[in-house]
Nucleic acid binder design. Structure first.
Lengths: 339, 339
DNA sequence: CGCGCAGTTTCCAACGTTGTAAATGCCCCC
DNA sequence: GGGGGCATTTACAACGTTGGAAACTGCGCG
């Protein structure tokens, strides 16, 4: 049986609290006593019961990170950052996978494992802003990342997705391309505020600003943001006769699928079709050709999300008004859009 | 303030235990009482404190999964499976990143957050088998995945890494290649039982079985298993004058880096150099060329690891002798080794 | 009308820890 | 030598929950 404070106390012939004081480095313990107790602690291999501590303290030191899918490199890279940053604060991260299902997103936002976690960082896919309005003060602090749910009563970090898509599109237009397709539209899904909708919007803005016609035949839809969907959507686009000479893929994973489809059809990238993605996942730096992309500052997103959560957990933090942080991004041109 | 059993009990005019009984569906509660209490529960939005339950029950329903790096797609894909399988058992997964550091691996194996988690699934990189010998019965059950620590006092699931590397090498030899390089050696790191050592061993076995000379100039070392290391190691191999006509990369991530380097140097794959990896990560299905690989049965590894943990947690499970499960793998030939 | 019984409900204790307040021991000075 | 003041140690309660045993209820039966 694992030794408890009481066991140690009995063996050392002191009170439980004194042992606790030694364990926690409480200052008013005489050196002799400290040493004696410490020795017994070591002897018995005492390990504090994190659980009991939590119950007592009301804090757990655990935060949850709920992502659509760990297999998507963008999310796994982001998760890596979050785990690392949280670690610096002495927190542990409990990773949840929502599969982008509204039901599961609601579940985590509503607080399964209540009192087990101090806060939640959620990357919503299917959640509407209404879904969060009836969160109460009893609910744990929530920070949303990556997708804007307008007027949601929660903190939010994300890049400006409209601007990102616009920057990417402008980059393509800057190459002299005239038929810039948008790959990654998600018509039915979520509200007008989903990532896909925002990025589509940015694409349109860029085209309009350049005085170009927005041809809806150049928009290709996908069910999810996986590589195979990118490949299929690219195929559909090419077979529709839309004849794009550039493609803005709504994320890198889609772009990698698209690159593959272009390759299979003998189309050269970027000579025949230029391709750009969004996310800057590591794969894109090693694909053939390497993938131009919009690189969100993932480290900063992770850091900000954790910091906002921390602020909410401080006394009085719950009363702060919902905050909106816009993370920066950067255009990273690589071979797939080489002039 | 979040409602507690006591609050509900007071409001409903019953005892705390009765409310508890209703919450837990305890059978001997009269229908009238059940309904009345349930109504108050709903009214007050009661949510059980997972923490207090844990303390009482001694079980937490949380397991930890400690991986070297989430950004490595093999691990993130595996993590996805583990989370999913654990979910089916009603468990939550706490994901830890060890960065492959011995210190951090020891920390998690030794039980940080003691009593917070019921069990641990660890993918060791730097840990030697000695590091685990003084684990006691007080420690939480441990299941190792992916790397063999011989005679370690813990359950273990992995593919037969020697056989896997041998199969991959034999595949390359079967193409008629005669100078098959091994990319991914890790000389200093860990013991002779690290993945890298096992895979090197498999490579040697295959060469010897084919009656070929084992040329150590065809072995290229890497510091870690990241894409950039694969690229660099490939460059080193080509510049050393070793002139390989095939490369066994010790994982897919390295292979993807290697593919890129070959491409940069104008070498054709597989015409000039055939390439095969191990892991079957999603990227490899979309790279140019698509990557031949050894596909470990990730779903089965995840499922087995979780099952073994579950068995350890059952009464008497702690007394089981350490078990060894060998997961299956499959050769998946793709373009990078097309005949 | 009282007794026993089955079915409900309640009371008590415990899970392991730590904050608070009270108790103890000690030293020093008058 | 006794009392004040300080440093150290201890006792107690509480965090929110649930298992087990005890207590209560109403009912049928002798």
């Amino acid at each position: 049986m694992q030794a408890r404070l009481r066991d140690v106390a009995e063996r050392a012939g002191v009170s439980v609290k004194t042992v606790s004081n030694v364990v926690n480095g409480y200052p008013h313990v005489s050196p002799g006593m400290r040493e004696r107790v410490q020795q017994v602690l070591d002897e018995m291999g005492y390990r504090p019961n994190a659980n009991a501590r939590m119950l007592r303290a009301g804090r757990t030191g655990v935060i949850a990170l709920a992502l659509p899918e760990l297999a998507n490199p963008y999310f796994s890279e982001l998760a890596g950052f979050v785990v690392q940053v949280a670690e610096e604060r002495g927190w542990t991260v409990l990773v949840d996978q929502t599969d982008g299902l509204r039901e599961r997103e609601l579940l985590v936002a509503g607080g399964v494992r209540h009192h087990l976690i101090d806060g939640l960082i959620l990357s919503p896919v299917a959640l509407g802003s209404d879904d969060l309005t009836h969160r109460s003060a009893d609910d744990i602090p929530l920070v949303l990342i990556g997708e804007k749910l307008d007027a949601g009563p929660a903190d939010h970090v994300a890049i400006d997705n409209v601007a990102a898509a616009r920057a990417a599109t402008e980059h393509l237009l800057g190459l002299g391309r005239t038929r810039v397709a948008a790959l990654g539209h998600q018509p039915g899904s979520a509200s007008e505020s989903g990532v896909a909708a925002l990025r589509l919007h940015g694409w349109e803005e860029a085209l309009r600003a350049a005085g170009m016609h927005v041809d809806e035949h150049l928009v290709s839809a996908v069910p999810t943001f996986r590589r195979e969907d990118g490949k299929a959507a690219m195929a559909a686009l090419l077979e529709s006769g839309a004849r794009p000479d550039a493609v803005l893929c709504f994320n890198d994973t889609l772009a990698i699928g698209a690159l593959r489809e272009l390759h299979d059809r003998g189309l050269r990238v970027p000579a025949d079709v230029a391709v750009i993605g969004i996310d800057d996942v590591a794969d894109g730096r090693f694909s053939v050709p390497t993938l131009s992309t919009i690189a969100p500052d993932k480290a900063s997103i992770a850091r900000t999300a954790v910091r906002m959560l921390a602020e909410r957990l401080e006394p009085g933090g719950r009363d702060l008004a919902p905050r909106e942080v816009v993370a920066s991004f950067e255009l990273v041109p690589r071979e797939s859009t080489l002039a």
